[in-house]
Design a binder for these strands. Structure first.
Lengths: 190, 190
DNA sequence: TAATTAGGAATGAATGTTCATTCCGCTGAA
DNA sequence: TTCAGCGGAATGAACATTCATTCCTAATTA
């Protein structure tokens, strides 16, 4: 069972797209095989079963997203600049991996995720929570549940991304700047 | 085929809970029957099939939510007061129908929704959009895509509701006031 | 160089399972 | 006794998974 090949990558990226667009339960193995242009049996050469496949995908992208946010993190800059770094990381990650964040968002908490997936996701949330807590202590971030604020930021950003993808909205720098301002105003202390 | 009975109501509310918690595709008819304490066959006395059931549910709650928002709408008051009315309507609706908004949010756009469901949902969005457009014209609401702002409000509110339901957060008036402020700051012109 | 062959990789038809839906016998009310 | 309403076993379709077979590739032999 090879660890990494073209075929394995095809299977993963096809699965990512289908899981993001239809959801895990509405996506069948033959659909993935067809999209990846491999036989259905081939998928089982690389992944024990459908649940292992979805957990592999989930962990892979959660880690990659966490790494993207952590890269060059300006820990000594202002809270606003840290927020900017995080927001930019989110836009960059999404433009490089079109379906990944939406897949993560729609599948976190699902019944088929294993402990590792849950832990990886919690670790990501805790990093964001830590940022907000720091900001709260400094009196710069609103005194609200961190989870609610994280939801506002992710929800807003991903909804925007859906609109861009579906062609309902043109993707301009101004747009992203505006949404970043909106999210920042949602969480900063007034 | 009776139009309304205790059993029919049981089926609908069981289906609502399961669809909200597991999603349409991961919810089986036997699960719904079991939860509603009826035979699997009984469900088919009231609904032609699973898709008719989910569409019935979707339309029922979308309309009820729209009615809740429209009730006593303060069309002549300030934008801020209109926003307050909408936000309060959302909290009231959610406390009266625990799973309904989350079900609507996670299933809008799904492949199994029929035209009526889509139209009902679009009508709801358009009402919210109209409110935001008015506010934009008056220079009170931010110049951002309305859909993105709607997403921020719903996303934030529903995430909060999840936390309350799961017991991670205590449901206080302060909390709701704080989240309303946060959402308002996210969409108002600064 | 050309032919042969071993063994991993890939396939898709076959299998067993689970589901939505149907069907038929039972029950209790009139 | 009849029959509407019900329950849950029966059915057939669709699914995840398996497995016997084929296909490739690259090493070996002549």
């Amino acid at each position: 069972m090879p660890a990494s090949t073209i075929k394995r990558d095809n299977i993963l990226s096809s699965a990512l797209m289908l899981f993001a667009e239809r959801g895990f339960d509405a996506t069948t193995i033959p659909m993935i095989a067809n999209e990846a242009q491999v036989g259905a049996g081939t998928i089982y050469r690389y992944f024990d079963n459908k649940e292992v496949l979805v957990n592999t995908l989930f962990q892979y992208y959660v880690k990659m997203f966490a790494d993207t946010l952590a890269e060059d993190y300006p820990g000594n800059s202002s809270i606003r600049e840290q927020f900017h770094h995080l927001f930019r990381g989110m836009t960059r990650f999404t433009s490089e991996h079109e379906h990944a964040l939406y897949f993560i968002k729609t599948h976190n908490g699902a019944y088929f995720l294993d402990n590792t997936s849950r832990e990886d996701f919690d670790r990501l949330l805790n990093r964001l929570k830590h940022f907000l807590d720091q900001g709260k202590e400094a009196g710069i971030i609103r005194d609200l549940p961190s989870m609610a604020m994280i939801a506002i930021i992710f929800g807003g950003f991903l909804e925007l991304h859906q609109l861009v993808r579906s062609g309902n909205i043109e993707e301009t720098d101004d747009l992203f700047i505006g949404v970043e301002e909106s999210c920042w105003d949602a969480i900063r202390y007034h």
